[in-house]
Design a protein around this nucleic acid. Sequence first.
DNA 1: TGCTAATATTGAGAAAGTCAATGATTTGTC
DNA 2: GACAAATCATTGACTTTCTCAATATTAGCA
Lengths: 164, 164
Amino acid sequence: MPPSTPADAVRASSPTKPTAGGEERFQRSDLAQEVAFLTARARGRGNALANRLLADLDLKVRPFSVLAMACSGTNPSQRELGSFLDLDPSQVVALVDMLETRGAIRREADPRDRRSKILVATEAGHELYAQAVQRTREAEEQTLHALSPAERDQLRELLSRIVF
Amino acid sequence: MPPSTPADAVRASSPTKPTAGGEERFQRSDLAQEVAFLTARARGRGNALANRLLADLDLKVRPFSVLAMACSGTNPSQRELGSFLDLDPSQVVALVDMLETRGAIRREADPRDRRSKILVATEAGHELYAQAVQRTREAEEQTLHALSPAERDQLRELLSRIVF
DNA sequence: TGCTAATATTGAGAAAGTCAATGATTTGTC
DNA sequence: GACAAATCATTGACTTTCTCAATATTAGCA
């Protein structure tokens, strides 16, 4: 995927020529110190990159996440998946429908509760996931290129503690 | 604001009663180790919380961010603001229109380029921002309550390095 | 048994993101 | 200095995503 805006294109194409002053000017603003701002930016750019790399598999990160859960061996119900991924139940059915139509996952009966349906990956789903994981690993590699391995672990650990 | 989904309500209301098994079951999944997943979750929940706390000012985090930039003293043009906040130019005009109608910011002529317009906060805008910052500080406090001050700085620093 | 709550699903409507076209203006080149 | 190409803000169309309420089925409970 090409840079999303002309402005991005400018900045991406010539790091040596700060875009009419560059954005370093804003890095000291109060906003730029807020963790909320930093996480928003990180997720926005990480998402865009991952979507680009997943495009040749006809996947985006949202369906990829659902597939990953179905491949995890944890047998989540749709509602468990929904709360884990912060998705509305109606979004879950849309995503599951798509992946099921594609033959990547299956809805199975929950033996403990006939209202709920459990998600499992098919053979093809596991293969698709294997392909997709390579892409997302590459995306993470690029996203975190400025950090050492130890720092990456540290970041993971800190983020885990604030979201769980 | 009440919890956004019935599932959230369940989890939020009784941390002692893990929702039919709880989500700890999924915390060891591959997905939960991905920084992309963690940042998405962090930004999603942080955003929701901040929006809740800003609601009484009739603000959301997006317009708040624009206001913050206008109050920063850096006099950004609309396009600079757009690339800093990862917003499409058309989204910028909508946000700026709204805040200008509200009397919080003004578009001023750019002496160096008559095509571009510079954003500055009005008196009322600065007052609104002062109110809003209290809310977002509180949101950050709640979001990061599990981290020590040193760890919060560390998180900020690591995130800064991956997004700038 | 009957009452309340939870699950998946549908569908409507609002919000957010994407993209192309345009007028005014600037920049680069001859 | 003139001309072509690029940039900025803006508009409008369009798609995707989010949010909510309503519903049928099933569980759990008194």
